[in-house]
């Protein structure tokens, strides 16, 4: 099995298109960091307009932790599209080239090949996330420095002490890995149903866009189905950055406001991954390889 995974990883990282996602993430992050470095104070002043009417905020608001949060908010919506580029090509690409028949004629079972391909695609996804974390968090910390995380949400502000922030990012990135692996498994499922790469890639991207729109619309009709959509749960990494308060409205150091929500989302995402990968195995096992 390990040798199959190695073969699949070799195939992934030999293709130039694999590095498009790494390049795109780096370019986006650098551009946003540059913009905020040059004109970040104007952006911060705009965000803090309402607060500044009442309070004076003293300290480095626009620090590496806040920059990372802003970047994750912007990028974790789009990174799934980059993941789909590789994941949705894993089986259909081979079918298109006619090499799938060769793979399945080896002594290894179809299930082993499918699992090896999925694990290789997952390694790519995790590496992409680590790259994102390195650029968004560590480079931002280096460029902008660190301070408390002053997080402006729609209806309230959360001030998290700087020694209470880093573990939340670890949690958020672990959570994000589940979100992106769900996209990987969806792309993988689409890939198992097609004989060319374009259809599954576009199909995966369309599914993500479609379900994301349903998840964000506050229309009662969609509220019923929202809890079952993986896109509803993908954004819940933000829950790591909301803290509990006691009766005196003092924030509790090291607390997370809604742990059950995080657990629930992780369960839903894991179930989606299992469902999509299992469906892929079943489809491939029954598939006639005609190409």
């Amino acid at each position: 099995m390990w040798s199959l995974i190695q073969i699949e990883l070799y195939k992934i990282f030999r293709r130039p298109r694999t590095y498009i996602a790494f390049g795109a993430i780096a370019a986006l992050i650098v551009v946003i960091q540059l913009g905020l470095k040059i004109d970040g104070d104007t952006y911060a002043a705009f965000l803090m307009k309402d607060i500044n009417d009442t309070l004076t905020v003293d300290g480095k608001v626009l620090n590496g932790y806040l920059i990372c949060y802003i970047l994750l908010q912007l990028l974790l919506v789009h990174v799934p599209l980059l993941v789909a580029l590789i994941a949705a090509d894993m089986i259909s690409g081979e079918a298109n080239l006619g090499t799938l028949r060769l793979l399945f004629s080896t002594p290894f079972s179809r299930t082993q090949w499918v699992l090896a391909k999925f694990i290789a695609a997952s390694v790519y996804t995790i590496l992409l996330l680590i790259w994102l974390a390195f650029l968004a968090l560590f480079v931002s910390m280096w460029v902008f420095g660190t301070d408390d995380l002053f997080l402006m949400k729609s209806n309230y502000v959360v001030l998290i002490e700087q020694n209470d922030v880093l573990w939340r990012y670890v949690g958020a990135f672990v959570f994000a890995s589940f979100s992106l692996l769900t996209v990987t498994s969806l792309g993988f499922l689409m890939s198992s149903m097609a004989n060319n790469s374009i259809g599954p890639i576009v199909g995966t991207m369309s599914a993500i866009v479609f379900f994301t729109i349903l998840s964000t619309l506050n229309i009662p009709l969609f509220t019923v189905i929202k809890p079952y959509l993986f896109t509803t749960h993908m954004n819940n990494w933000k829950e790591f950055f909301d803290i509990q308060v006691n009766d005196s409205n003092e924030a509790i150091h090291g607390s997370v406001l809604n742990i059950p929500k995080i657990k629930n989302s992780l369960i839903v995402l894991t179930l989606h991954i299992i469902l999509f990968v299992s469906a892929s195995i079943i489809i491939i096992k029954k598939k006639d390889i005609l190409s």
Binding site: L47, D50, D53, K153, S154, N155, K226
Partner: peptide, 18 residues
């Protein structure tokens, strides 16, 4: 204190109001 409100389009908190 005055009212505090940031549009969801800025905070990117669609559909998860508290």
């Amino acid at each position: 204190t005055k009212d505090y409100k940031l549009p969801n389009g800025i905070t990117l908190e669609f559909g998860d109001e508290d």
